[in-house]
Design a protein around this nucleic acid. Structure first.
Length: 237
DNA sequence: GTCCCGTGTG
DNA sequence: CACACGGGAC
């Protein structure tokens, strides 16, 4: 199966700039950004980010407010803060042996950095990789990691897989199957999550948000500071 | 109008 | 273990 996958990857693999670097900081940034945002959208933002903060030291020296501002539009603002804190940890103590010690870095991201940057022999398992391995029943080496992620993201989709264009369809025991949604979720429109994000965008724009409830939640996560009823981006490192 | 996605927290 | 977290994809 891995040979078929490799041929497909050569023709249909995504051309992502961080796949040509081994810089662990650059890879960490790409992984954190791409965890919740389509990779095509991430590419220009990743390039801008590395121009502005080319190293973990440079990012660590920025203020949290600058980092939050640069992050806008990449989703889940807490991740920006975690990435900043991770850079400060790296700047102060170097790269830890156990990468999950870094804030915002769990099993998947730790394995991705270990594999792609440090050349460790581990297969980072995101849900794309897990879907393909579960459905095909095949096993793959860490060399197939990028190909598995692309196949899972573009062909072996969560609910309605595109088996008609899948290089592994022949002999796949799950071929043609459809799947129920894994999570239940209400609409984003009008949700508290959206209000939070709107309130933070207002602060980034230099305005005072009117949504006090959202501000309280943002302050609890350290995304804003409130003093004398005035809301600002966090400036202290 | 609803789901996806990894991590942290209650 | 369930849930919060964003915004484009579907």
């Amino acid at each position: 199966m891995e040979a078929l996958l490799s041929v497909w990857y050569g023709r249909h693999g995504r051309d992502l700039p961080w796949r040509t670097t081994r810089d662990p900081y650059a890879i960490l940034v790409s992984e954190v950004m791409a965890q919740q945002t389509q990779v095509e959208r991430v590419v220009p933002r990743w390039e801008r980010w590395l121009e502005r903060w080319p190293t973990a030291d440079a990012l660590a020296a920025a203020s949290p407010g600058e980092v939050i501002t640069e992050w806008q539009g990449l989703g889940y603002n807490r991740r920006a803060l975690n990435l900043h804190r991770a850079a400060q940890h790296i700047a102060a103590h170097g790269w830890p042996d156990d990468l999950t010690e870094l804030p915002g870095v769990g099993r998947y991201t730790a394995d991705a950095v270990a594999c792609f940057a440090f050349g460790r022999d581990v297969l980072p398992e995101d849900v794309n990789v897990r879907r393909v391995t579960d459905r095909t029943g095949a096993t793959f080496s860490p060399a197939a990691a990028q190909a598995l992620m692309d196949l899972g993201a573009t062909v072996c989709l969560a609910r309605i897989p595109r088996c008609g264009i899948c290089p592994l369809a022949e002999g796949c025991p799950s071929r043609g199957r459809r799947y129920e949604p894994l999570r239940k979720q209400g609409p984003l429109e009008g949700s508290f999550r959206q209000r939070r994000a709107q309130a933070l965008r207002a602060v980034v724009a230099g305005e005072q948000p009117s949504d006090e409830e959202a501000v309280t939640a943002l302050a609890r996560d350290g995304l804003v500071h409130v003093r004398d009823g005035l809301v600002s981006l966090p400036s202290a490192p």
